[in-house]
Write a protein that binds this DNA or RNA. Structure first.
Lengths: 83, 83
DNA sequence: CTTCTTTATGCGGCAAGGCGTATAAAATAG
DNA sequence: CTATTTTATACGCCTTGCCGCATAAAGAAG
């Protein structure tokens, strides 16, 4: 299952979903990634523009990785990350 | 061609490579992404920790997109991004 | 409703990103 | 080698991410 992120909010949603799937709380994830629970909250909500390192740390803590690839691989434009 | 980025430097290398492939200068990319040439330089060099928005803007300007997926898809640990 | 857990907000503070402007240094062209 | 383009650095400024600490609000459990 590979998820496309073109905005911070989409990225936040992906992270939140992954965290729940992993049955972790924001505090758990924060601890693993070296972040505050508050920071995790803000990032998941998409109401901040996190640094790359912060994002990578969170993804690593969730056993996820980032991939860069040419756009529009199928190009279903993801009107909004509804699910 | 899908590239894994687990660190800022790897991300910077990916961007630089993509920019060159697209035959753009740092100034070109900067213009498209709304960034200074100097900023592009620093990010490509990996000596800064860019914000998510900045990275997404650069990727968009290069017609690239970000994908999140489970780690270790083959798990070749990428000792360092040599090429 | 009450209790416990989880998530969202708030405030002051420090560090760092990105900006404008400018220039040095390196690479490419001629 | 010289001229031009491209890339790397620098300084000061402003904004904002993330921190610690604390608390409010929202959910889940009893």
């Amino acid at each position: 299952m590979t998820q496309i992120a073109r905005t911070q909010s989409q990225l936040g949603n992906i992270i939140r979903r992954a965290r729940k799937t992993a049955k972790m709380t924001q505090a758990d994830l924060g601890k693993r990634a070296g972040l505050r629970q508050a920071t995790v909250s803000q990032i998941e909500s998409g109401d901040t523009d996190p640094s790359t390192k912060t994002v990578l740390d969170m993804l690593a803590a969730l056993d996820l990785e980032l991939v860069v690839r040419p756009r529009s691989k199928g190009s279903h434009d993801d009107i909004e990350d509804i699910f």
